[in-house]
Design a binder for these strands. Structure first.
Lengths: 221, 221
DNA sequence: TCCCATATTTCTGTATACAGTATACTGAAC
DNA sequence: GTTCAGTATACTGTATACAGAAATATGGGA
């Protein structure tokens, strides 16, 4: 049994990010360390350490003397992160040994198709999406690269709540992911990269619309 | 007058990195928080916060329960970081508005040539190198990207000491940088990207040799 | 001499305490 | 009513204290 005593700081980091994903915090607002630490049932020390870690990942901004603040969200901010992730995932594909990529290509296609089978539960869709990308990059030998990608994806969790309502999300993802997988099966790396980039960049415009409509709904209340 | 009271944590971070660049620490070894904080004349709290920040940048690794450790250096580790930086700087060029890039292209060439004029003082060479890349990316509108690139470059400071002895470094850099600049002047973005990538990847093989010779010198003592 | 168990020390991870700065509030002058 | 000064409060940044886990040293038995 592999009980891995996780440090409080790490637990706090994941818990905070779960709450961020659930939309429990107002992005752009400042963070009260005392309140939050009390809410989590821990002291300020490990909380601050977790917040510093998250600020390095772009989830939080820190202003000297004024403490921490949830990094504001915007379509532009989302686009910036996505541009980086897309480029890095393309690099990861490029660095993956071609033969190993061929071996897993069919499985990647399966993962892409698995989408359509799911019910539209938001969490389940997220999980499938993560699985797909994880499998896609699983043969990349550059571990630092994989860590960097993961780090940037953390920042995107601030936008999770905007995804829940998207009806056509499942179909789109399945289509786009299948395109990537098929390109890999055809041993066409640059086509796979193009499809992968398209997959990411498309999400930007989707988010833009989702944010606009949610903002409208919010204003109506 | 713009006095900006810097937090202790930030000062520690820069001081620690300066010492890393100077080769004051043995990479791969564990970090004693008490000793280091006493040496810096601060308490453990801001030191730990700085170390956490640096661990996010890949300068330090942390093992639960065993504290911090200087991330080991190796040619492979260097190569991993360089692959990422090269890809991200290429992306930054791609995202820079073409017209703005044209405007600064001559200045970029000047910066490339400025190299040859310098004496071979290690610090001055580093500074020129940084200036060149900073100017090159100055028109990139994706701020997150620029921060990410900077973050990865911090990790490379662990290898600074291996650069000092390189005689031909100045000429090589001048040549490679000029190639980048000339491609930009010719409005050939992909050629510029190729030259930029080559510039970075070349540094990997150079580091490999430098590490081998320094290691040999160390073993001889 | 080597190995293992136990004791001791060291060090990390977390909580608490304190100081100084930023913010909010109150009240008086205009 | 508005503006400014002065005071009180809240909060961050840093230092210190404490508990528990690792690492190291000590000693006895094979």
């Amino acid at each position: 049994m592999a009980i891995q005593r996780q440090s409080l700081r790490e637990q706090i980091e994941t818990e905070v990010m779960n709450r961020v994903g659930a939309g429990d915090f107002d992005m752009g607002e400042s963070i009260n360390e005392v309140t939050l630490s009390a809410d989590l049932g821990v002291s300020r020390t490990p909380l601050r350490e977790a917040l510093i870690s998250l600020s390095q990942q772009g989830v939080i901004t820190r202003i000297s003397g004024k403490g921490f603040r949830w990094a504001p969200i915007s379509e532009r901010d989302f686009a910036e992160a996505v541009q980086i992730i897309a480029a890095l995932e393309c690099l990861a594909l490029e660095l993956s040994p071609a033969d190993e990529l061929n071996v897993i290509a069919p499985r990647i296609l399966d993962a892409a198709k698995a989408f359509t089978a799911t019910e539209a539960l938001a969490e389940e869709v997220n999980s499938h999406d993560d699985d797909f990308h994880e499998l896609l990059l699983s043969k990349c030998p550059n571990r630092r690269l994989l860590e960097t990608i993961a780090s940037h994806k953390v920042a995107l969790r601030r936008y999770e709540k905007f995804f829940v309502g998207a009806k056509d999300r499942v179909e789109r993802a399945a289509t786009e992911h299948s395109a990537i997988a098929n390109a890999l099966i055809a041993k066409d790396l640059s086509a796979a990269q193009a499809a992968l980039t398209a997959n990411w960049l498309n999400s930007t415009s989707r988010i833009g619309k989702a944010m606009a409509s949610k903002e409208g709904a919010k204003a109506a209340v």
